[in-house]
Simulated scan of single mutants.
Amino acid sequence: MTTARDQALAIWQAGVDAVGGYAATRAALDDLPCPDRILAVGKAAASMARAALDHFGPLPCLVITKDGHGAELTASVQLIEAAHPVPDARSLMAGRALLQAVGAMTEGSHLLLLVSGGASSLAEDLVTGKTLDDLAALNRAMLAEGLDITAMNACRRQISRIKGGGLLAGFKGQRADVLAISDVPGDDMMVIGSGIGALPDAYGFAASTRIVASNSVARAAACDHARALGLNVLGDAETLHDDLAALVPRIGARLRAMPRGVLVLGGEPTVVLPPNPGRGGRNQALALALAREIAGDPGLVVVVGGTDGTDGPTDAAGAIVTGQTWGKGAAEALTAADSGTWLERVGALLVTGPTGTNVMDLLVALRT
């Protein structure tokens, strides 16, 4: 028998599936010329690169992605896996590899650059005077302060040689095409991956940039799946862009007042971390905080998850909570930013593995 939990999870998954890196990239390739080289960077880089290689055939290809996200690639692909959300030495190696690959392209050549969220941490080449320690400290500080992605990436661009249009500034070929999966509000190419796929202020080559998947596409697909299940869609909005302290009371009140049906929300909340935080990410924290808001409500299921399949420095995408989830020890875990430990103990974690995409976060609430 299909349960409300099964339905809510299926609706969330339908949203994620609709923005899969492989399908979204493949659909955008028909009107592009065959490139001489493919560069892919971000959490969805492997699936995007596979789509291009399947479409165009064997080509020189460099993929830079998060640890564990490149397993599906063949040995012919140059793969660099690096750390996220805090960069490591491999991130600097990846940034140099990108610069070298772009700089080595000759006059008349065509480049296909595939960009997805996570690129800010995964690849970097720093301006003179900055070190990896400076970069890691900056990322840790921004994460702890709960800055939104636009503010974080503006700070990252200031110390980078490859962000904000810097990477393509070294391109001397004839044409560069950029396809991006957006994980930022407004789908701004200067913000996605801190602008690693943005065009420089002045460039002398033919260029095109295109967003191939976004949070709005994921939400629309989730809503379509809910309707296909015969459920009433009560709302669809990108309203998760706020700090948890402000966001949770608003969403909690909306959930408690929900009639029967489905609510779909997207975005990327922020969390201010305490010293020495425990295990979990923003989605796990949001899910546990909402579990407190709906405690005792017998008819609600809420799925909150990162569409990339990871939430902060954990292997979980988020969590699935109900009116029965909140319990002893939950408040302490929430305060200590240790939501993941508590949610795992009660069997509420959402674990999907890498999804091959990254379009921020998705919340699905279902009242039966």
Rank of each mutant, 00 (worst) to 15 (best):
V351Q: 12
V321T: 04
G356A: 12
A330T: 08
T322Q: 03
G318T: 04
A319G: 05
G356C: 12
P354T: 07
L350S: 03
L334F: 08
E332D: 10
A316D: 09
E344R: 09
V364P: 11
L334A: 14
A317C: 12
A333N: 00
V303G: 08
W326Y: 03
T355I: 10
T357W: 07
N358G: 13
T352H: 09
T335V: 15
A337I: 05
V304I: 13
W342V: 04
G318D: 07
L343G: 01
G305A: 07
W342N: 00
L362T: 04
G340K: 10
G312V: 10
G340I: 08
G340R: 11
R345Q: 14
G312H: 06
L350R: 11
G327S: 12
I320P: 09
T341V: 00
A330D: 08
T322K: 06
G323D: 00
V303R: 06
A348V: 04
G327M: 09
V351T: 15
T310R: 15
L343F: 03
T310N: 11
R345A: 15
V304E: 02
D315K: 13
T355H: 15
W342I: 01
D311Y: 12
E332H: 12
Q324G: 10
G318C: 02
L363F: 03
A316N: 14
W326Q: 01
T335K: 14
I320H: 09
L350A: 10
G347Q: 03
V359P: 08
A319S: 12
E344G: 14
W326A: 06
V364C: 08
T352R: 14
G356Y: 02
Q324A: 13
A331K: 05
A317L: 09
A330C: 10
Q324P: 08
P354I: 07
W326K: 04
G312R: 13
V304R: 01
A348H: 05
D361P: 08
E344V: 09
D338W: 09
T325D: 00
L350M: 02
Q324Y: 14
L349I: 09
M360T: 15
D315W: 13
A348C: 06
G347V: 00
V346Q: 05
V303I: 10
A331P: 09
G329S: 02
L334I: 05
L343P: 04
T314H: 07
G312T: 06
T314K: 11
A337H: 02
N358T: 15
V364F: 00
G305Q: 02
A333Q: 11
G340M: 11
E344I: 07
I320C: 02
G323T: 08
V346K: 10
D361G: 10
N358M: 15
V303T: 06
G318Q: 08
D361W: 07
T357R: 11
E332K: 07
L349R: 10
G312E: 03
T335N: 12
S339Q: 05
V321P: 00
A348I: 04
A337K: 05
G327I: 01
E332V: 14
A333R: 03
G340C: 08
T357A: 11
K328C: 15
V321F: 04
V321R: 02
P354K: 03
D361Y: 09
G309R: 04
A317N: 03
D308W: 13
